[in-house]
Amino acid sequence: MTESITVIETPRLRLRTATLDDAPFYLALVNEPSWIANIGDRNIHTVEAARAALEAGPMAQQREHGYSFYIIERRSDGAGMGMGGMIRRDSLPGPDIGYAMLPAYWGQGYAYEAAAAVVQHAQHVLRLPTLYGITSPQNQASINLLNKLGLRFERFSRLPPAGKETNIYRKDFCCDLGSVSAP
C-alpha cells in the first residue's frame, strides 16, 4: 500500500497524495450531483472501481509528473473535504488546475485556499511556466474562482473524450512572480 505524503499545507488545510485507502471517500465525491454536473459522470459505482480509478488517475499522475489531484483535508480534524491539484491532459499544452469540494464545505473559502496554494506550488516549487484551468461555460462558481486565482479566459473548445463545451483559462508564470498570495 502506498503511503500518503503531505504536499501542501495552508493555515486550515492539508493537501496530500491519494492512496487506495481513499477509495470510499473518492467514490462518494465522484458521485456527488455537483461533480457529475460540472465534471462528468465517471461511472464509478463501487469501492473497487474507485480504487482502480485512483490508481490509474491521481496516483499515476503523481508518479509520472510529480503532481496530481490531492486529497484536501481539514487540518483541525483530518476531515476529507474534496480534491484539488493539477493533472496533465493530452488535450492541453500544460498542467490543468482542478478542484472539487463536498457541498458541506462550500462557501467557506476552502476551495480558494486550496487552489491558491496549488497555484503557488505550481509557480514556486514546481516552477511551471504556465497553468491552465478548464470549466464548463455554465459553472459560474468555478469561472469566478479561476479569475480570482489570476487565470484568464483564453478560448472556448470541445475537449476529448466527450467533446463537451469547455472554457479554457491560462496563467503564465514567466513574468508574473507573485500575483496570487498564499492563503
Score class of each variant (00 low, 15 high):
residue 113 E to A: 08
residue 52 A to Y: 05
residue 90 D to W: 06
residue 135 T to I: 06
residue 136 S to V: 11
residue 100 A to C: 09
residue 83 M to W: 03
residue 131 L to D: 00
residue 148 K to Y: 06
residue 108 Q to M: 14
residue 36 I to L: 08
residue 102 L to K: 11
residue 148 K to I: 03
residue 78 G to R: 11
residue 104 A to C: 08
residue 111 A to H: 07
residue 74 R to D: 01
residue 67 Y to L: 12
residue 71 I to P: 08
residue 111 A to T: 08
residue 30 V to L: 07
residue 154 E to A: 09
residue 63 R to K: 13
residue 26 Y to L: 02
residue 22 D to C: 01
residue 105 Y to A: 00
residue 40 G to T: 06
residue 87 I to K: 10
residue 89 R to W: 15
residue 148 K to C: 08
residue 144 N to F: 09
residue 95 P to E: 00
residue 86 M to E: 00
residue 91 S to C: 13
residue 48 E to G: 00
residue 48 E to F: 03
residue 21 D to R: 15
residue 138 Q to N: 10
residue 87 I to R: 05
residue 95 P to R: 06
residue 133 G to T: 03
residue 103 P to V: 07
residue 33 P to T: 09
residue 23 A to K: 05
residue 58 P to T: 10
residue 120 Q to L: 13
residue 157 S to G: 04
residue 95 P to L: 03
residue 154 E to L: 13
residue 141 A to L: 05
residue 140 Q to F: 15
residue 110 Y to W: 10
residue 105 Y to T: 04
residue 87 I to Q: 13
residue 41 D to Y: 11
residue 154 E to M: 12
residue 52 A to R: 14
residue 60 A to L: 07
residue 91 S to L: 05
residue 67 Y to E: 03
residue 109 G to L: 07
residue 90 D to Q: 14
residue 124 H to I: 04
residue 128 L to V: 09
residue 29 L to G: 12
residue 126 L to Y: 00
residue 27 L to M: 06
residue 55 E to M: 07
residue 114 A to R: 03
residue 86 M to A: 01
residue 68 S to Q: 11
residue 133 G to H: 04
residue 107 G to Q: 02
residue 45 H to K: 14
residue 32 E to H: 11
residue 132 Y to C: 06
residue 135 T to A: 11
residue 91 S to G: 15
residue 111 A to C: 09
residue 70 Y to T: 13
residue 129 P to D: 06
residue 56 A to C: 02
residue 96 D to C: 15
residue 130 T to R: 02
residue 73 E to N: 07
residue 153 F to H: 15
residue 125 V to Y: 01
residue 139 N to V: 06
residue 88 R to V: 06
residue 25 F to I: 01
residue 84 G to S: 05
residue 48 E to D: 01
